[in-house]
Design a protein around this nucleic acid. Sequence first.
DNA 1: ATGGTCGCGCAGCGA
Length: 267
Amino acid sequence: MGYSVPIIPNNPMRIASWNVNSLRVRLPQVLDWLAQNQPDLLAVQEIKLSDPEFPSAELNAAGYQCLFSGQKTYNGVAILAKIAGSDVVTDLPGLEDPQRRVLAATFGELRLVNFYVPNGSEVGSDKYAYKLDWLDKAAAFVAAEAARYPRLAVVGDFNIAPDDRDVHDPAAWREKILCSTPERQAFQRLLDIGLADSFRLFDQEEASFSWWDYRAAGFRRNAGLRIDLILASPDLAQRCIASTIDKTPRKWERPSDHAPAVADFHD
DNA sequence: ATGGTCGCGCAGCGA
């Protein structure tokens, strides 16, 4: 009596996002990572398989229900969840697009939007124009979601490094793809809706990245970018108690080029 | 400026 104890929130909810670069290749790693980290929700990108090929049985056996919007060879997104999701959305309003890059669903109080933002290839290219148009439609969608759902998380591979802290060599990347001003302005429009980049709610080590090029020994040199993000609405952000990048799986044999972003939230 | 490595799928594209 008379002394206080730290308040440890019980039942924190853990949300993670991981570009797995082929779920077929990475399924054993995803299963290991789920077992070790026990997220409530894992948003995955670049599953690179069609819906009939989705490995639901293995993931169900590991305690995860699966929502997915698959595509053969390219793209494809999924949400692996300990509880059932509802109100599933797989397309951006106003964008006719065969590329499977969007998956949103509701889990209890939480609305989760999983994005695989287009890479854009090169500034000024057709793919770059597609990326900016996609981001425009995505912002309108997120604004509508934010208006409907107070507890909103927008996660995924954004293919944008929000600012120079998120770039290993800002001079080399200046106005290059993933770092150009129009891309960063498009990202800022998501923040302007009221979302917070959960990673920046906390002190972080310098040179913290989530993606490293397979080429030129990017990971060994920590020549990376932070492009895998967990954004949170105000109601959710004030519940955020941690936001990190788990580099462990990037060190495994035959890794994805991305590491998972992970955030914890109290009730 | 180029190329370096993966994944898919079997040549070359996308990242």
